[in-house]
Computed example of a mutant assay.
Amino acid sequence: MNHLELIRALPKAELHVHIEGTFEPELMFAIAQRNKVAIPYQSVEEVKQAYNFHNLQSFLDIYYAGANVLIDEQDFYDLAWAYFEKCAEDHVVHSEIFFDPQTHTDRGIAFATVINGLQKACEDAKTKLGITSHLIMCFLRHLSEEAAFETLEQALAYKDQIIAVGLDSSEIGHPPAKFERVFAKAREAGFLVVAHAGEEGPAEYVWEALDLLKVNRIDHGVRSEEDPELMQRLIAEKMPLTVCPLSNLKLCVVENMQQHNIRRLLQQGVHVTVNSDDPSYFGGYMNDNFIAITEALDLSQEELKQLAINSFEASFMSETEKTQWISKIHALA
């Protein structure tokens, strides 16, 4: 089995994907027409051109324009179902999916509309595709602590449908410390917790996520390498980093994929995983990310297997489920 065949054959868990970031141009345009929502694009081709953004702000502009067309439960279902079909193609057998309720509730969309549509797609993915999943509700860090508390209150009624809370959006100037009290309340309510840290922001933000938010996983975390003491801690605690290589390239965290540090992190014993982040915007889904780092960093087959194993170990699946999938990885020739 060559490297490409192995990538396709490996069962994988995806732990860092924003459902709003899986919005393909064709689906965005179709839902905009269905809902009679005006968008500043006359054709699918124009939407695709807009996806060729040049920096974080131009990405956010098209990202929020896309979110505006999502109005009904069916829209959220269709968005999630399209993502699950991509998972099936890439042998992603489990996904822990971020959603941003504030992106929608601030537009007047009910929290229930968002989560019910997503939840129904999760249920269908399990019965029709054999893909298990969890939902992770993220707070938008550029908004206030007060707004995050309000969103947490809304989420409590759906506690059995949301496994964890997270923290995403623009990192610079919005340190994890800003949300320390919100995360304490979320943990008290029984949620697991994760947070984006150390992508745009410095290694110090990773320390804050660990010490103040008391996270179960760090999302991104690639700048942790700048702090040797932090690296020692991540390795000792086996703290997962949900790394998104194509995203890092597209948002200029690295200048080219040959510069990416995921292999170095893996070789040093950091619990890194591979994920797609906002795949419709950043150039690819799970296997695209695996292929990109394999070609750029000359990953061995054992390293590819270890990355897949890490994804299950770092997941919020039951220990029994983790063991079953990891044994299947070990069984691959």
Score class of each variant (00 low, 15 high):
His142Ala: 05
Glu5Trp: 05
Gln102Ile: 13
Lys250Trp: 09
Ser276Ala: 15
Phe98Val: 07
Asp298Met: 10
Asp75Thr: 09
Ala65Pro: 08
Asn289Asp: 09
Gln57Met: 10
Leu79Gly: 02
Ala236Asn: 12
Ile262Gly: 03
Tyr83Glu: 07
Ala195Pro: 05
Val194Thr: 14
Ala65Cys: 14
Asp288Thr: 01
Gln258Ala: 14
Asp106Thr: 10
Gly166Ala: 01
Lys120Val: 08
Ala30Gly: 04
Ile62Gly: 09
Ala314Ile: 00
Leu246Glu: 06
Val194Ile: 03
Ser318Ala: 15
Asp100Ala: 13
Ala197His: 00
Asp61Asn: 11
Gly117Cys: 03
Cys252Pro: 03
Met317Glu: 13
Glu153Ser: 12
Pro228Tyr: 10
Phe149Cys: 13
Ser280Thr: 15
Arg34Cys: 01
Glu313Ser: 13
Tyr83Pro: 05
Leu27Trp: 13
Arg8Ile: 06
Thr105Leu: 06
Leu251Ile: 04
Ile163Arg: 01
Arg264Leu: 12
Lys305Arg: 14
Met257Ser: 09
Glu20Trp: 10
Ala186Trp: 01
Val270Ile: 08
Leu212Phe: 10
Thr103Asp: 11
Glu171Asn: 03
Ala203Val: 12
Phe23Gly: 11
Ala67Glu: 13
Ala110Leu: 11
Met28Trp: 04
Asp61Met: 06
Phe76Ile: 10
Phe23Arg: 08
Thr105Tyr: 06
Asp298Trp: 10
Ala13Phe: 04
Arg263Ile: 08
Met137Gly: 03
Val92Glu: 05
Ile326Thr: 13
Asn216Met: 00
Ile71Phe: 02
Ala30Asn: 14
Phe191Trp: 06
Thr132Gly: 12
Phe111Pro: 14
Leu266Phe: 03
Glu145Tyr: 07
Val215Asp: 01
Leu210Ser: 09
Ala125Arg: 11
Gln33Trp: 04
Ile97Glu: 02
Tyr63Ala: 12
Leu129Trp: 11
Leu60Asp: 02
Val37Glu: 08
Ile71Trp: 00
Lys126Gly: 01
Leu246Ile: 04
Ile293Val: 08
Val114Ala: 07
Glu153Tyr: 02
Gly166Met: 00
Leu6Glu: 01
Pro11Lys: 02
Phe99Pro: 02
Asn248Thr: 05
Glu204Ala: 15
Met137Glu: 05
Ala82Val: 11
Met286Asn: 08
Gln154Phe: 13
Lys120Gln: 15
Glu96Leu: 00
Asn68Trp: 05
Leu299Asp: 07
Pro240Thr: 09
Tyr41Thr: 11
Phe59Gly: 09
Phe282Cys: 06
Gln306Gly: 02
His54Ser: 12
Glu229Leu: 13
Val17Phe: 06
Glu24Pro: 01
Leu6Ala: 06
Asp288Leu: 02
Val206Ser: 07
Phe183Ser: 00
Lys126Leu: 07
Phe59Ala: 09
Phe53Thr: 07
Ala112Ser: 15
Leu212Cys: 09
Thr22Arg: 05
Asn310His: 08
Asn289Leu: 08
Phe98Ala: 02
Val182Thr: 12
Tyr64Leu: 14
Val254Pro: 01
Phe99Val: 01
Leu10Met: 05
